[in-house]
Design a protein around this nucleic acid. Structure first.
Lengths: 199, 199
DNA sequence: AAAACAGTAACACAATTGTGCTAAAAAGGT
DNA sequence: ACCTTTTTAGCACAATTGTGTTACTGTTTT
């Protein structure tokens, strides 16, 4: 038998080249050839792993969400409840250059996924991430409810949605105006928001 | 003298054709020729009003922000302070199909603007809208502070940023998950958020 | 050593891209 | 009716696009 390559690893490598192209020149520049050049291979090689471009796009988008999920799953709860919750929330907000880059790419994919015709597969990835983020907020607030105790009369579902919207908004601001929306500022805002929920 | 055309009006018409293309097939499909076909003219005619594609993109992006600004400016304060504030906030959140479409297009533009190289002009439009939204939040909260009176010890700057992040997050959710994030739900969440700020 | 097969590169091809250029068409002032 | 200038359509051209196909290279097992 011939030379064996880890297909999944190679696919991820190509997807990361796609990320860099999207980050540098936008999704309009993400052609098979530019991606191949960025990855350091021929276009033919790229097409061996991704028969068509749509599959490549979809894989690269899914890989973003998998990477984020991995990072969140790897976190270990530490400190008191509000502090631990804060650490989780910070993880899904782009507070450094690498995660800002990741967010920009994700935004490109989201925008593309919103196109009515075609792009059917991409929409599912958006929903998946959206549900995952919502579940994260739910888990965190439930933990807060058990440990510290939320204010009496708190509508949990409502607070989940409010927190979810807040972190998505903060993520956007951190990505497009990093100078204004500094990591320290994001932490302050999140802490303040959580304090308002506690008893 | 020959036939005279309102250039600005024609440019807006073309830009709106671009919007429809972006909305239907994504920004990757926004070529001079597809836009011309969508607008019902030849590619040559389009290029008469927009010498190059970058200018068209920039104009179309700017037009989005101008339309939103116009809508917000046209609003008249009505009802008690919190209700009036709510009406303003609702206006910048995509609660109907038309505004969802508008938001999708804006997201495509934002994503493109985030590309490092080139796209210099687009970034300025993002900042302008971002500043405009922040100012709106500031104005509304200040009005609330004078009329109804916010809670004692409220950090106004912090609440401005929190509200700003919240509405941007809600706007995203309303755009990508309109079934979950209904207009009624958005109003509830905003009302609840404002209630938490009042004395 | 040889065969068998995964991996890679390269070429082909029609379609589409942005932009430069030119000629025709249209319409208001004389 | 006739200019004069704006507006529109069309062609050209090199570059790039996605994808199909084919030949080559390398490596592992027999």
């Amino acid at each position: 038998m011939p030379k064996i390559v880890d297909h999944d690893a190679r696919r991820e490598e190509i997807a990361e080249a796609l990320w860099r192209v999207v980050r540098r020149d936008g999704i309009r520049a993400a052609s098979v050839r530019t991606i191949a050049a960025e990855a350091g291979w021929s276009a033919g090689a790229v097409r061996y792993y991704f028969p068509d471009q749509a599959g490549l796009l979809s894989f690269a988008m899914d890989l973003v969400s998998r990477r984020v999920t991995e990072r969140v799953s790897a976190l270990q709860p530490k400190g008191d409840a509000p502090t631990a919750v804060l650490r989780y929330l910070e993880e899904v907000i782009p507070l450094d250059a690498e995660r800002r880059s990741e967010f920009d790419i994700w935004m490109s994919f989201m925008a593309q996924a919103q196109a009515e015709s075609g792009a059917g597969g991409l929409r599912a990835h958006v929903d998946k991430v959206q549900d995952g983020l919502r579940e994260l907020c739910e888990t965190l607030l439930q933990a807060l409810a058990k440990e510290g105790g939320l204010r009496a009369g708190t509508d949990l579902r409502r607070e989940i949605e409010r927190l979810h919207a807040l972190i998505d908004g903060l993520a956007l601001h951190a990505a497009i105006q990093p100078d204004r929306t500094t990591p320290a500022r994001v932490r302050q805002l999140l802490r303040h928001h959580l304090d308002g929920l506690l008893a």
